[in-house]
């Protein structure tokens, strides 16, 4: 065999190996009640997912074994991904007197296109359960937002619900914002290392840059003035999104989705901020 053929063969074997490695190990036989309740509000709206996969730059080669060809099966990962996008795209009231930010901000952060929030990005999934999600820059092509099995399998973690998943799209997307504008948020996966100050989540700590309601016009969340008075961290964007889902959703958003979003927001606000806690969303009445 000549050297050039050996090289070609090696390339092909790499492709094959990648194909094997891409087979999903995540449990795709069940969905959380919150996922099912939200799903039933659209009953698998095909027009939406045919838009969504483009808006999030999702590819069959990444999602093939994760429900790409079974897009109406809520137990699978890809359908759960677009279910969360559906909440993010339509589920907020956008009331400027009450909401922290508007849909335009959260969509701008989560979706693929190069904009004021980040450079181009695409969404993939991973079976790696040592992370909830990650943001990676690529020298060639768009940057990558990965979401882990922990956001899809309800047996594993609390985050396997549409609000938390969409919250993670915003969290990872905000790392894209940090990257676009050259901000240094820490060297532990884009967060501060250890458990400094009031943060208890090791190597996942951020500052909370407190701001009032109405401080940002809808669409202006990307803005900053170089000081702590007008800035956001990834965990903060996530908390504010979850608060907006819990407290100011559209009237059709299911209560199971709101309850889970509120619980995630308040947990995150209590544990992930060096200068925390962040705001407490809603009141502690049980229902």
């Amino acid at each position: 065999m000549t050297n050039s053929w050996k090289v070609k063969l090696a390339v092909c074997l790499t492709v094959l190996f990648s194909a094997v490695a891409m087979s999903a190990n995540c449990n795709q036989t069940t969905a959380s009640q919150a996922d099912k309740d939200l799903w039933n509000t659209h009953g698998c709206w095909q027009e939406f997912f045919l838009w969504q996969y483009q808006a999030y730059d999702m590819r069959g080669s990444d999602w093939g074994s994760r429900g790409w060809n079974d897009a109406c099966n809520v137990n699978k990962e890809y359908p759960k991904h677009w279910n969360a996008s559906y909440l993010l795209t339509y589920g907020l009231q956008d009331n400027w007197q009450f909401s922290f930010h508007g849909t335009v901000d959260y969509r701008g952060t989560a979706e693929r296109w190069d904009n004021q929030f980040h450079d181009d990005l695409y969404h993939t999934a991973t079976d790696d359960t040592s992370i909830f999600g990650s943001f990676s820059t690529h020298f060639f092509g768009p940057n990558e937002v990965k979401t882990s099995c922990l956001l899809y399998d309800p047996n594993l973690a609390t985050n396997a619900n549409p609000g938390s998943r969409a919250g993670d799209f915003n969290h990872e997307g905000w790392h894209g914002w940090m990257d676009k504008y050259n901000w240094d948020n820490g060297s532990c996966g884009g967060h501060r290392c250890g458990t400094p100050g009031n943060c208890t989540a090791k190597d996942a700590c951020d500052y909370f840059y407190f701001h009032g309601i109405g401080a940002y016009a809808f669409g202006a969340m990307w803005e900053n003035n170089g000081t702590a008075s007008r800035f956001h961290s990834p965990n903060q964007v996530q908390v504010e999104f979850l608060c907006d889902v819990a407290d100011y959703p559209q009237s059709w958003v299911p209560n199971s989705v709101r309850l889970a979003a509120k619980s995630d927001a308040n947990t995150r606000a209590s544990t992930r901020f060096i200068n925390g806690p962040g705001y407490f969303c809603g009141d502690p009445r049980p229902w």
Binding site: S32, P154, N161, S256, L259, P286, W287
Partner: peptide, 16 residues
């Protein structure tokens, strides 16, 4: 263990 959102819902209803 199996579905946090369902368990949370049940505790919420019981609390209320």
């Amino acid at each position: 263990e199996s579905d946090f959102t369902r368990s949370l819902l049940a505790l919420s209803v019981l609390g209320e």
